[in-house]
Amino acid sequence: MTVSTASIRAVGVTTYGAPDALQVVEVPKQELGPTEVRVRVTAATINPTDTYTRNCSRSKTGTPRGAADVPGMDIAGTLIEIGEDADTSLSVGDRVMGIVVPRDDHGAYREDIVLPARSVTAAPRNADDIAASTLPMNGLTARRALDLLALNPGQVLAVTGAAGSTGGYVIQLAKHVGLIVVADASEADEELVRSLGADQIVRRGEGVADRILELYPDGVDGLFDGSVQESAVLPAVKTGGGVATVRGYRGDGKRDLRVHAVSVVDMVEEQKKLDELRQLAEDGVVTLRVADSYAPEDAWRAHERLEAGGTRGRLVIDFTR
C-alpha cells in the first residue's frame, strides 16, 4: 500500500515555545495498516502533558521532525476506515473515542488519525464528541493507578489533586469498587470533590500529609498523588502501603512503600478497559467534565488558559468549527 500524498489539518508547532507557538498546520495523511483504523476527528482533548510536546520538553533534537510536532493524547470522532486484520467489533460510521501516543506529527490534534484498532472503542451513547474525547487518557490513567495499587474493598485511598480530571476519575472508580476515599481540596473545590464521592476531605496544599494523618493516625492503605507532591505526602501512607505517582517519581526510599510510577502508555491497547470506562460513563459512575471548547486556530488560547491554572474539567479542540 502506498502512503497518501494528501494533507490534513492539524494543530502543532513548527518552532517550540509558549502557547502562541501553536498554529494550524498541514500534515501528511497517514497510511492505514492492516491492524489499524482511521478516525475522522471531531474533538481532541487538551491535557497538561500536551504542553511538553509544545515547549520542547519531549524533543531530543530541539527541532520538530517533519511538517510539525502535534500534541494530544485523546480523540473522539467517527470511524471511517478499518484495516483488513483489525481486531474490532466496530463498524464504519460508528462514533468512537481513542487514546493516542503522540510522536512527531502523530498527536491527537488532527482532523484525521490512524490508530491501532485496540486503542479505539465506542463513544458513550449519552455524551457528545466533545465530552467523549475527555475520557480515554485521564480515565485509563486512573484505571492503571488503581490496578497497580490493588486495594481491597474497605481499604482507605488518599487522593491529591482530587479536583483535577484524573483525580476525579480515581475517586469515582475507587468508590465504585468499594474503597474509602480521603481527598484534598481547596475551599473553592470542596463541593466539587464531595460530589465526586470523596468520603472525607482535607484542605489541599502544604501539610496535607499531616491533615490526612489526623484522620488516619496509622496512615492510609494507598495514595494516588495526582498533584505531584511526591515526598511531602508520602508520610500519609502506612508502612507497606501503596503509592501511585505520575511523571515517573518512584519514591524517596526512606520507608517500605510500594511505589508505582503510572504510565498510561502501558494502557494504549487495553481496548477492554477503555470500553469498560465507556460503560461506566453511560451508567453515570464516572463524570465527563468539559470546561470549554475552542476552534483549532484558538488552541493556543486553550493552552494559555490551561497554564494559568484553576481550570476544572477539560479544554477541548473542536474540529467541526
Rank of each mutant, 00 (worst) to 15 (best):
V156C: 10
V170N: 07
Q200T: 11
A244F: 10
V182W: 01
G167F: 02
K175C: 07
I201T: 14
D210N: 14
V208A: 13
V182A: 08
I201N: 01
K238V: 12
T166L: 08
Q155W: 05
G205M: 05
Q155K: 08
K254P: 00
D184K: 02
T239A: 13
S186D: 12
G248V: 12
G248P: 09
G154C: 08
I180A: 04
E230V: 11
N152G: 06
R204F: 01
A174Y: 01
G164A: 09
G242H: 13
E230Y: 12
V182T: 15
Y249T: 12
A198I: 12
V159K: 00
N152A: 14
F224E: 02
V259I: 15
A162S: 15
K254F: 01
S227R: 04
D225S: 11
G167C: 09
E187R: 13
G219L: 02
V177F: 10
G219P: 08
S263I: 12
G197C: 10
D189L: 00
G205F: 01
E206D: 14
L223E: 05
Q271T: 15
R255A: 14
T166Q: 09
S195M: 08
R211E: 08
A209I: 04
G164V: 00
A261D: 08
G240A: 07
A163E: 05
A244M: 11
G161K: 03
A236Q: 03
V228W: 05
G226H: 04
G154V: 13
G167V: 03
V193E: 07
V264F: 12
Y249A: 00
S195C: 10
R258Y: 05
G197T: 13
L157P: 06
D218G: 14
L213H: 09
V233R: 00
A209H: 05
E191P: 09
G248F: 03
K238I: 09
Q155E: 15
V262F: 04
M267K: 14
L213N: 13
A158K: 02
L257Q: 11
D266Y: 01
Q271E: 14
V228C: 08
L234Q: 10
F224S: 06
E270L: 04
R194I: 06
R258H: 13
L157D: 07
V259K: 08
I171L: 02
D199G: 13
H176Q: 13
T166W: 00
R204K: 13
Q271V: 15
L213V: 09
G242Y: 04
Y249W: 15
G240C: 04
D218T: 09
E214V: 10
M267H: 11
A174D: 04
A261Q: 06
T239G: 06
P235T: 09
I212R: 03
Q200E: 15
G241Y: 04
R203H: 12
G154P: 13
V177G: 01
A158G: 10
E214A: 14
G161D: 02
G164E: 07
E269W: 04
G253C: 04
R258M: 09
D189P: 02
K238G: 02
S195V: 07
D252N: 15
S231M: 07
L192S: 08
Y169W: 02
Q200M: 06
Q155H: 10
V237R: 10
L196Y: 13
M267W: 06
V181N: 02
D218S: 12
R255D: 12
L215V: 10
